[in-house]
Structure formats: structure tokens, C-alpha cells
Design a binder for these strands. Structure first.
Lengths: 354, 354
DNA sequence: CCAGTCGTTGTGAGCGATCACATGGCCGAT
DNA sequence: ATCGGCCATGTGATCGCTCACAACGACTGG
């Protein structure tokens, strides 16, 4: 027995000396240099209270001298949880989604390593697979940026093993959710236009597969109904300035269209462009309000009145919900971030009124 | 001895049965179900050739039945390398950097998990720390999006342990690098303006801390010098439309300024806006060429002639360089992606000429 | 008919951390 | 003086996987 044990230790020690390990020094190297056990080093690393200050300093010195860095993989393996946060988003350079991603990264970066999966399309299969893959990697949590209708259904049959927060998705999923109040933003825009005395407000929406679009359409309709106005037919765009441009040409042929709410700033730009080509003056002949407040919106001609979303705040809220779930196995609560109207020069009174 | 062994196995088996393990089933569970050793399962997972087809199928079936997914952490720990790719970029929603990030994700996503570190500033300390952190995590490789001058110096004293590719950085760093030929792009823009007969071309640049800015300034100057023209004073902006707007007001006071090359589209928008406010007609009174070809550039008024960069291609090239380094310990080669001129309506002949 | 080779599978150690538990010193309380 | 308890530290097992090597049978060639 005794001999067997010695035989076992032999190779082990030799191996450690030869350092075939892939990376730099390991915890045992630090322990040896500091003259303590590996466990004590681990305690120092994890800020365990019961370590004598003197020992702590010795360990710290050894860590510094060896330029030791703990292995995340080993820690993950031992503890079963990592500090990696998975974010699933879609293949898009659109202002909204990309700002959302940015806001999220900002908010997470202090506690987590953020890894991003950019999906080509947000259909159920791809989404589920991406989330499952994260779960396999034992991520600490998953954030799904799911602004599409198709995403909603996919999330229903997802395993419960991991904290998940939806951003910009639908509350029906029964998961923790952070979203912007699209409807309220649209209402802000519409009511702002109505306040100038416009008889009606037209709307150029995003694709009806987007929850954002749907919410904005609802808010627009609601605001009109509340004012006792029958909403005019919806003009559906696809977020692109080109679609706005086409919508602009359409609107130009409708004399009674004096005010339009565009579901994003880039479509608004397309509309403005079309109007300019047709020799219409803005905002005198057509008032317009956008959505997003892209950085360049103030420099459109006319400077665009629009609705701003605080993406940093959304990111922060998402991280809060996620932490709640991680720490206390929390609930499926829901936060809604309110948008704000940014008044510039693109909305004014209708022609008749002056 | 025999008893000791039983004692040892006892708790082990019980543990396995109770599954206090953090995740789902482990490789041994699959092995047991398939009636093979864990090593055989490992072989199947890694597509090792020497496994009998029949065995392979049995293992595959067991994997499916248990819904087994291998643990990345354990694999990383055992092999010393992960499939994670670290990307370091800076705190920016600017079109260039964010498109770059997007292109990179697109190109990487099939082989790697991309994790992003968004730095508040690209100074040496922050950059080095971020890269080192990735190295500690034993990432497969690191991509640094380093468009700032400050980043250049920081990369010199970085450990060699990990494949690194610079994107949009400076070749002097002696590392693998993918970059856009900023200078050639600027030359394209400048020569396009000159071709209309303009006597001179002014330039509104980005901040001189950006390598992109510097390259574009150089290309602009070179093009003018080649044409035997003394470059006018440089107007420095900060990429923002607001800075373009200020530059526009400045330019408006200089009668001989008939053509301007803006270092990005958003500054061009600011210039256009300023001109419009002052009642100048564009492009008749001032020709302008931008840089970036943001999606909305075609809908500026006038539609902006600009220079386009293929970010997807840059991402692809970066991934190629990285794979070369990972697989063959490759070299510090350098790829340059060429930009293309996109001609629209914002550049035309100077007023004198008609 | 036996040695050598190859294909297939199994065994045990090790990656670098944490966790559960053991140990030994020092303290105040009995 | 003795004992339970806390503090500081150490020991060994374990997480789930891969790697190096051993074992075994079938096939081949001399």
C-alpha cells in the first residue's frame, strides 16, 4: 500500500516540475512559492475572510511574482457556473438592435464576459439552438434580443435551467422581460402632431413581423382613436430609407395627408427626400415625426422631431433582472422603459391653419 | 484492498446516480448507456476515425437519448485551448467600428464563440489588460479593433502566447493586420472631385488620434500634390454631424472652396445641413464626397457620393489570418482591403465652369 | 504456425480549480 | 485545569473531459 502511494506520487511531482501545462503557472505553483497549500491560495483568490493578513500578503506577493492568473475553465468546471453571459441577437445593423447590444455590453461588462451570437434569422429553430448552446456552455445567464414575432413562440419550450432575460420581446412569453414602451412612444409622436391641429396623422410602419412595429402601430391608432379620429390606412415599410422614400411618393399624392409619423428615423429621411424631390416644403407642407433619435437626426433638413429610447437604461435593467434571477432564482418580472419625445423642427401646423 | 475499492466506488456511484453535478449527463453516463468506455465516447465526439460504425451509432443513440452535451469548460481544461475568440473594440456606436464588429461576428460565428470587450477608451493600459484577460481565459485567438493611435503603442509589449489579429490598426505593430486602404479611399474621393474641374478640394477630417483619419488625410494630400495642387488648410472634425455642421459654416465663408471631402458621411450630412441653412445650393455651389456609405447616404439631399468599405470582407480576412495563426503558428502577414467609390449626386462641376 | 501490424477499445492520470472535511492552535467559559 | 468553539490552514476528492499508453483480436506474410 505504502509503496503504491509512493509510486503514484512520483510521476505526479515530476509532471508538475516539467510544467507541460498549456498556460502559465497554476494555483499549486503559487502555493509552493508562498509556502502555503493550494487551498489557502484559493481562499485568497475568492476573498474568503478567514485568512491571516500576513498569509494573504505572502500569497498576493507570490501571485504577482509569478504573474499568475486563475483559469476560468477550471473554475467553471469545479463550480458549475461561469461568468459568461450569452447574448442572442439577430443579423442586423439597424440602429435599434445594435444600440441595444451596445447598451447591454456596457451594463454587463463589469461582472460578466459577454459573448454574442448573431443569428441570421430569428426563427424558432435557430433561436432555440443558440440558447441551448449557451446552456451547454454553462453560461451564467442568457439575454435574448427578440424583437420579432417569430421569436416569441420559440421561447416557450426552452429549458428552465438558466436565467433568461428577454429584451425587446413580448411579455406573453412568461419570462423576465425588458422592453421599451413602443406604444407610448408612438402615442407621444402622434399626439405631438395632433397638437398642431392636424386633422389626421398617417403612419409609415416597420414590417409587421416586428413587435416594435406592432407596438408603434397600436400606439398610433390608440392616440388617434382617443382624439376621435379614424386612423387612415397604414403604409408598411421595412425600416429602410428606401421604403420611406417610396412611402413619401405615395403620401405626396394624398392632399389631405399633412402629418406623418414614421416608425424610424431612416424611413423619415426617405420621406423627406421624396418630398424634397417633389418640391414640397417641409415641415410647411408635411409635418413628420420619427422614432429612434439616431445621432444624425438633428442634422436632417428639417431637423427631425423624433422619439428617443434610452438603450443604456434598457441594458442596465436587463442586467438587473438577470442578476436577480442568478442570485435569488428570481421571478419573471417585467420592466418597461419609457421613451421621450425630442422636439426639433420637422413638425408644425398644417398649411390650412395659417 | 478489495473492500477499500468498494468503499471508494460506493460513494462515487451514488454520486453519479444522484447527479449533483451542475449540468446534465456527463460523458461517463453516455458511456454506460452505450456499453462502452468514456474514451470511446470521446472518440465519437471528436470524430476520431478508428471507431467501428456500429459502435459509433450506439454511442450517438445514447447521446441523443440522454440529450448529452459536452462541457466546454472541461474540454478547455483538458486541452488547454478553447473555441472562444476575444474581440476588443472601443466604446463606440460609430458606423465604422460597429460594422467592423458585425462583419467579424459574421465571419467567425461558424467556428468560434465570439466574446466582445468594449473598452471605454483605447488607451494602452485598458487595451493591454483586456487582451491579457483573454489570454488568461485561454482563448483561441484575439482580434483587436484598434483604429486609434494610442492603441498602436500598447500592442508592442503584449505576450506572444496567443494568436492576435489587428483590425484597422497600424502595420508598424508587427502583427497580423487587416485594414482598409484609407489612403486609397481618400484618393478616390479627392480625384473624383478634381475630375469635375475643381481647382482645389478641402477636407474635413476625423480626429487626428484615429489612424483612419490620418490615412484619409494622407490620401487626400497625396492626390492633390499629384495634381500639382497645394492642399488647403485641414479642417478637423470629430466624426459627429455637429462637427461637420461647424465645418460647413466655416467653409461657407471661403468663396474659393467649391469642393470638400468629408472623412465620413455623418460629417458630410452636417456640412450639407449648414449649407442649406445658409441658402447655398448643393451640389451646384459646393460639391461634396463622404466616406463610409452609411445605409441612409443615398437619401441625403443631394444623394451623397461616398466611399464604401466592405466590412464583411474585412471580417472574413481577419478570420483567415487568425486561422492561419492558430493552425500553423503563422506569420504577421497583412491584408489590405480596397474601398470603392459610390457615385451619386453630391459632386459636380464647380460654379465657374458653367 | 507464429510474429508483426493494424484497427478497435479500455485504463488511468492529469488539466486547475473548488468543496467538504480534518487538523491543530488559541481562546474564553465552565 | 479542561473543554467546546472559532480561526487558520491543510488534505484529498471531484468536476468532465482528453491524452498517453496498454490490451486484445483479426489479419497478413514469411
Amino acid at each position: 500500500m505504502r509503496e503504491t502511494e509512493l509510486d503514484r506520487n512520483g510521476p505526479t511531482r515530476r509532471r508538475a516540475a516539467a510544467r507541460p501545462g498549456r498556460g502559465g503557472p497554476a494555483i499549486t505553483d503559487v502555493a509552493r512559492l508562498a509556502g502555503v497549500s493550494h487551498q489557502t491560495v484559493s481562499r485568497v483568490l475568492n476573498e474568503h475572510p478567514n485568512v491571516r493578513e500576513q498569509t494573504r500578503l505572502r500569497v498576493l506577493a507570490a501571485i504577482k511574482e509569478l504573474d499568475y492568473h486563475p483559469s476560468g475553465a477550471a473554475r467553471t468546471l469545479a463550480t458549475g457556473r461561469s461568468t459568461v453571459l450569452g447574448v442572442v441577437t439577430q443579423n442586423s445593423t439597424l440602429f435599434g438592435p445594435s444600440s441595444l447590444l451596445f447598451g447591454l455590453e456596457q451594463a454587463a461588462t463589469s461582472d460578466f464576459d459577454v459573448t454574442v451570437t448573431t443569428l441570421r434569422s430569428l426563427d424558432g429553430v435557430a433561436l432555440t439552438r443558440a440558447v441551448r448552446r449557451y446552456i451547454d456552455q454553462q453560461v451564467a445567464g442568457v439575454v435574448v434580443i427578440a424583437p420579432l414575432v417569430t421569436a416569441r413562440d420559440a421561447l416557450a419550450d426552452l429549458p428552465e435551467r438558466v436565467p433568461i432575460v428577454l429584451v425587446d420581446g413580448s411579455p406573453e412569453a412568461g419570462r423576465a422581460l425588458v422592453t421599451a414602451d413602443q406604444s407610448a412612444g408612438a402615442r407621444l409622436a402622434t399626439e405631438h402632431l395632433l397638437s398642431f391641429g392636424h386633422r389626421n396623422v398617417w403612419h409609415v410602419s416597420g414590417p409587421n413581423t416586428w413587435l416594435d412595429s406592432i407596438g408603434r402601430v397600436e400606439g398610433w391608432q390608440a392616440a388617434l382613436r382617443d382624439a376621435g379620429i379614424q386612423p387612415p390606412p397604414l403604409i408598411e415599410g421595412d425600416w429602410s430609407p428606401a421604403s420611406g422614400y417610396r412611402a413619401g411618393h405615395l403620401l405626396a399624392r394624398i392632399p389631405e395627408a399633412t402629418a406623418v409619423f414614421a416608425a424610424n428615423d431612416h424611413m423619415a429621411l426617405g420621406i423627406i427626400r421624396a418630398m424634397r424631390e417633389l418640391g414640397r416644403r417641409m415641415p410647411e407642407e408635411l409635418s413628420i415625426v420619427g422614432f429612434d433619435d439616431v445621432p444624425e437626426a438633428a442634422f436632417f433638413s428639417p431637423a427631425l422631431t423624433t422619439v428617443r429610447l434610452d438603450f443604456t437604461e434598457i441594458g442596465r435593467q436587463a442586467m438587473r433582472l438577470l442578476r436577480e434571477q442568478i442570485e435569488s432564482g428570481g421571478s419573471a418580472s417585467c420592466r418597461v422603459v419609457q421613451p421621450a419625445l425630442v422636439v426639433r423642427d420637422s413638425a408644425t401646423a398644417p398649411p390650412d391653419d395659417r
